[in-house]
Structure formats: structure tokens, C-alpha cells
């Protein structure tokens, strides 16, 4: 009887998890990869490539270039108005992840 209950619990459980999986499949994953923490905030100021843009566009820029700029902003080597204050909020690892994601955006 104990074994029977366990078996039925397993059966019901696995069917329910199957249902959840099917439900989940109705939700497609993000198109261009999952944005790492902080990455989606950049486009508040850094827009798409446009002639005469006052703020540098970041989508599609080489990853190393973004990482280097962020490091220089953090150390104060590169002059900034606001990016020095923002760059200090991200670790090297976080910055690399964001830069890599930005470089892959269309």
C-alpha cells in the first residue's frame, strides 16, 4: 500500500511536471540571449547608431572596447561626466558580461 501511494504520487507528480513543461514551452526564450544584470539599463542613454548622436551607441561595439572604456572610467583615466559614477557600480566580471551582450546586439 505504501509502495502504491508512492507510485501514484510519482505518476501524478511527473505528469504535473510534464504539464508545467508544456505550459513553459508556450513562452519563447529571449531572441538575442539573456541580458546579464545591468545590461538593459544602458539603452536609457546609449541609443541606436544615429548620425550626430551625443552619446556613443553601444550595440554591436567590440566587447574589449567597452570593457576598456569602463575600466578607464572607473580609474578616472578617461574623463567623464557621469560614466565614472556608473562604472564604479560594476565589477570586472559584470562589466565583461554586459560588454559581451552589448557587442552581440543588433
Amino acid at each position: 500500500m505504501g509502495r502504491g501511494r508512492l507510485a501514484s504520487a510519482l505518476t501524478l507528480g511527473s505528469m504535473m511536471s510534464m504539464a508545467v513543461t508544456m505550459m513553459a514551452e508556450a513562452v519563447p526564450a529571449a531572441a538575442q540571449g539573456v541580458a546579464p544584470p545591468g545590461a538593459t539599463a544602458c539603452s536609457g542613454c546609449h541609443g541606436p547608431v544615429a548620425p550626430g548622436a551625443a552619446v556613443a551607441p553601444l550595440h554591436g561595439r567590440p566587447s574589449e572596447e567597452i570593457v576598456a572604456a569602463m575600466q578607464d572610467f572607473r580609474t578616472g583615466q578617461r574623463p567623464a561626466t557621469v560614466m565614472d559614477r556608473i562604472a564604479k557600480g560594476f565589477t570586472d566580471e559584470e562589466t565583461r558580461a554586459i560588454a559581451s551582450w552589448l557587442s552581440q546586439q543588433p
Binding site: 513553459a24 544584470p37 545591468g38 539599463a41 536609457g44 557600480g89 560594476f90 559584470e94
Partner: peptide, 11 residues
């Protein structure tokens, strides 16, 4: 999707 959300960082 039945996944746990990632811890965000905001600006």
C-alpha cells in the same frame, strides 16, 4: 517559463 528570475542590477 517556470524558471527563477536572475538577480538584477539597475541604474
Amino acid at each position: 517559463r517556470g524558471e527563477g528570475p536572475t538577480e538584477p542590477k539597475l541604474i
